[in-house]
Design a protein around this nucleic acid. Structure first.
Ligand SMILES: [Zn+2]
Ligand SMILES: [Zn+2]
Ligand SMILES: [Zn+2]
Ligand SMILES: [Zn+2]
Lengths: 160, 160
DNA sequence: CCTTGACATGTTATATCATAACGTATTTTA
DNA sequence: TAAAATACGTTATGATATAACATGTCAAGG
């Protein structure tokens, strides 16, 4: 078990970004899909911070890096990353975040700090299981989930 | 325990709508808040169906009923109902739905059928508890949640 | 190699969702 | 009944997202 660095602890963040990219390359290689320059740059942009970025924020940064300046440029790259499980969409924020553990446990739970906007992705198994159980009592089959919590991270709690 | 009618079963829906309105009146009375005509009409609109409606859908119907025709009319009424726990916002759909049990258990789980767009609201306690537990391991305090599942309801499964 | 088809990128234009700011009317309270 | 708070309506604008189409790139098969 990798000692999961979590977004709310101070940590060597270059590690997150580096391994994130490396994992993406591996994963896409095995799927014979291409991590093109825009896609790579988009993932890097998301990996730069442990928070969710709106599509237009991403777009600005893509444009600054010499890519297209129109919304579909960002939306397409983001959609691709989300489909491949390399990024997630955070509905509560209308925003996107790099996935912090693309290999393991999908169907993430997001913890969104309203103080500092940090976003942590935590393992979802138990939550997901509880949700499945609730669904089953009414005969509903769960295919995709959005499980998001808004609140305060330990740092912001301490500061308050 | 009321035998909770659920959105995926055929049921006497006028009962849902009637009790929904009645409950809203009681609740707002105890809080000394007003169920004004637009608010009442908005709640009735949401109660007409077990699915989520976009703000602009609601607005159209409000306008047809003689209320204002501009977005804030709908958004304000919806926001009020959501604040009072009489309706919920379904982030996955950018839409709103009447609450199906305003008294009990809040922090609902939504089950959204991608076949027929039906929306069921199920009790969230166990899911919520699992989420709290996950949050606690990183020191995060949960304040609000969005827990939504997309999938297939029993009827659509049978039809497929 | 070169054609061909699939995929990827870019553009313009438009659709959809949401709120700011302001004036008027209604309701409550003193 | 005056003052204050609340609610409703408008205009205008902001923010998010997708449709439709043209051009460019790549990987295979001939
Ligand atoms: Zn990091
Ligand atoms: Zn993830
Ligand atoms: Zn019903
Ligand atoms: Zn509810």
């Amino acid at each position: 078990m990798t000692p999961h660095t979590n977004a709310f602890d101070t940590h060597d963040h270059s590690h997150c970004a580096d391994t994130g990219l490396a994992r993406a390359e591996e994963i896409l290689a095995t799927r014979k899909l291409r991590l093109t320059p825009v896609r790579r740059q988009t993932l890097q942009i998301l990996l730069q911070e442990h928070r969710a970025l709106g599509a237009y924020d991403v777009l600005e940064r893509l444009a600054a890096a010499g890519f297209g300046k129109q919304p579909p440029v960002a939306y397409r790259a983001l959609e691709f990353l989300v489909e491949q499980g390399l990024a997630h969409r955070v509905r509560r924020l209308n925003a996107f975040a790099a996935c912090m553990h693309p290999e393991t446990d999908h169907a993430p739970v997001f913890l969104i700090c309203r103080g500092c906007n940090a976003l942590a992705e935590t393992p979802a198994q138990p939550v997901r299981a509880a949700l499945e159980a609730a669904a089953q009592t009414v005969g509903f089959t769960v295919e995709r989930t959005n499980i998001e919590a808004l609140g305060l991270c330990p740092n912001c709690k301490a500061a308050a």
